[in-house]
Design a binder for these strands. Structure first.
Lengths: 210, 210
DNA sequence: TATATCATTGCAGTATCTGCACCGACTGCT
DNA sequence: AGCAGTCGGTGCAGATACTGCAATGATATA
């Protein structure tokens, strides 16, 4: 527990502790019984917290799993993506999205358990796609920034927007594909790059651009 | 489709009448107030039916809209797809899926209203994607049949399965893209073909840029 | 007509989620 | 230390989606 700030307030520390307690209790119960055989009340009892508190932290039951998996990372990673040149936009974008999910949350152990839960509950993986869809505008904006940084200009109105939307859809397709292929253990950056590249190659073949 | 038989039983006729009443009431209310501002009780009152009856016909609130939109059509259309040759597999598959949705249900007016509802409620369009995901195994089986009919053999174990899964994912991507582009009025087969082709072209560009 | 089937219903109950008001612990300032 | 304001946690009432069960009455069938 190397606390960067020596004091960040007792109130804030308690907050973090409460959230963490709920998350740990939820993940343990879900791992044991499966998502739909666990009720919010069960989680609250295990976490020694009222149901109302649970919903104060997580807007929904799914939120316990999904909230810690943001589809987009911080400003610096986005900036790196936007100003990268000479590499494939689609692959870079996939790397950006999957990289953010791989490093979700401060506790790597929780992230590992979460991935286990996703493997056993496909319905939750679908929830991740929903989150991504909800943030599509943000994704499109990022992609348009990249296009601009590359000096691309549209010959037709909305042309670049269309391409950005399509890339978002393709990202969801790859995500869906990799989820199906289980994508277990390893998450180091090199292997992730390889997996993404293979998926893109398969996509090219399926699309007929070989 | 039941106009041919003069008698198919009073019980059956009442059944379809009840289902139709619920569907019409639901669509009208949802068009007016939006999906999440309509409760099941409201629909039941308008359809003069108990809530229990509603859930006897439709497993869920979303089912009122989604049940009539099967992601795959009947045997004959599937057979046509499987044995088609010389055309692009992806485009044919897209045509198969979208064609089935365009001709959903016996009442074309209801189908038209349903499409309106989908445009105004993106969350319901996401529901369609979920249905498609639930039937992914069926979709993959169809695609493998097509591959077999084309005489394709896999050099590596699971190669064709991977490609089939990827095509399903790409289909979802195109569906997602077209939903975003609104895809209003026209549904005649020719225009649908054109729209699909354009989407695939855009996809090729997004996937092939270096 | 007698019997079986089945659509429909009411009812009780469970589960997710929300708005509201209260309490009490923390926090910042004096 | 004391005081006032903030805010996390809680209980409660209620809305809403959905399920199992048993009863009832209309329809089908023998």
């Amino acid at each position: 527990m190397t606390r960067g700030q020596p004091h960040e307030g007792l109130r804030e520390r308690k907050r973090v502790a409460t959230r963490s307690a709920i998350e740990r209790a939820a993940l343990a119960l879900i791992l044991e019984h499966g998502f739909d055989h666990v009720t919010v009340d069960m989680i609250c009892e295990a976490a020694m917290v009222s149901q109302r508190t649970f919903f104060n932290y997580f807007g929904s039951k799914e939120g316990v799993i999904l909230d810690a998996m943001p589809p987009f990372p911080g400003e610096e990673a986005v900036a790196t993506f936007v100003h990268a040149t000479g590499t494939d936009v689609l692959e870079d974008f996939l790397e950006l999205v999957f990289g953010s999910m791989a490093s979700a949350g401060p506790d790597p152990e929780l992230t590992r358990v979460r991935r286990l839960v996703f493997q056993r509950n496909p319905v939750l993986a679908a929830g991740l796609l929903d989150r991504m869809r909800e943030r599509e505008d943000r994704a499109v904006a990022i992609l348009l920034d990249r296009f601009a940084a590359e000096g691309r200009t549209s010959t037709r109105a909305g042309e670049l927007e269309d391409e950005a939307h399509m890339i978002v859809g393709l990202t969801m397709a790859v995500f869906h594909y990799l989820m199906r292929k289980q994508l277990e253990g390893r998450v180091d950056a090199d292997r992730r790059r390889t997996i993404i590249h293979e998926a893109v190659m398969l996509m090219r073949r399926a699309v007929g651009t070989v």
